[in-house]
């Protein structure tokens, strides 16, 4: 795939994800302005920052949906900057979206099977002739899809269209789909958005269980309670720039972070009403 350079040698020694001096400009606007951070195996890393700080843009650069205008993204030492999203997914990087992006008209099980696309062993002739290989791979896919739906604790109907599930359940399906890819690294874009208190507690538990599988987690999240409880490290962005990187304790005390969230008196931002007070 274009842009994917196989560079053996730096395996496993370096970080799982290494973002180096990432830049993304939209015309004159610097959505991401020199972001660097890394994530290691088993990490739970949160990327926080006020609205419009460039968190989702950074995610989109890492997963190939935007082409960064500068900097590098390495996964296990391989440069994936600017590669196709599917090529990056093939490297074991999976993601969810800020606004649910399920395949609404398809069954819940099919949604999860999407994650297995790359691993399913069958071709068009197997499908046309319904060979034993086809049946086997379909059976395995169904079993595995059910396993992931159990894992995320889905209670609703799995055989019906995904759009029929309540919102919180759809969030679970999206995580199950991302997990079915068998990722080394899972990027979750605001997984707690729109969840009620009970669902947030279950999410916290789910995130810990995902981490226990050995999958590194990077999440964008606005719910500070969740972030502080689950993260091992926190990266704080403001106006596309990284303003802090450290443990939850360190970040909580960082004056630059407080300023970003509470604002300075002499500067009045257009989005003042959206500044969270917590």
């Amino acid at each position: 795939m274009a842009g994917v350079a196989d560079a053996p040698g730096t395996l496993s020694a370096g970080p799982l994800l290494d973002v180096q001096d990432l830049h993304l400009d939209f015309g004159g606007i610097k959505a991401v302005d020199g972001l660097s951070f890394s994530a290691h195996d088993g990490d739970i890393l949160s990327v926080i920052g006020p609205n419009g700080a460039g968190k989702t843009s950074a995610f989109n650069c890492i997963t190939g949906f935007y082409k960064p205008t500068g900097g590098k993204v390495l996964v296990e030492g391989n440069d994936i900057t600017g590669a196709r999203p599917s090529a990056i997914a093939a490297r074991g990087v999976s993601r969810t979206f800020q606004n649910l992006r399920l395949f609404g008209e398809l069954t819940v099980l099919d949604n999860v099977r999407a994650g297995m696309h790359m691993r399913m062993k069958q071709n068009a002739f197997d499908a046309l002739l319904h060979t034993p290989r086809f049946r086997r791979s379909e059976r395995q896919a169904t079993e595995e899809a059910n396993h992931w739906l159990d894992f995320v604790g889905l209670r609703g109907d799995r055989g019906g269209p995904a759009r029929n599930l309540p919102y919180g359940e759809q969030r679970r399906v999206e995580i199950a789909r991302a997990l079915a890819l068998g990722p080394r690294l899972l990027l979750l874009d605001e997984p707690a958005a729109g969840l009620n208190h009970g669902e947030k507690l279950e999410l916290l538990d789910l995130l810990r269980r995902i981490s226990a599988l050995g999958t590194a987690l990077v999440l964008i999240e606005h719910d500070m309670g969740l972030v502080m409880q689950v993260s091992r490290r926190i990266v704080v962005l403001n106006f596309g720039k990284q303003i802090a990187d450290g443990t939850p304790e360190e970040v909580r005390r960082n004056p630059a972070v407080l300023e970003a969230y509470l604002g300075k008196d002499e500067e009045s931002h257009a989005d003042e009403t959206e500044v969270p007070h917590d």
Partner: peptide, 26 residues
Amino acid sequence: RLGRSRMGRAWRFIREDEDAAEAMGI
């Protein structure tokens, strides 16, 4: 049969949401 296979599902994923399909390695 093609429609109910791995490939057929991938086609439907593309129809439903091309970006999400791409993110799944398709």
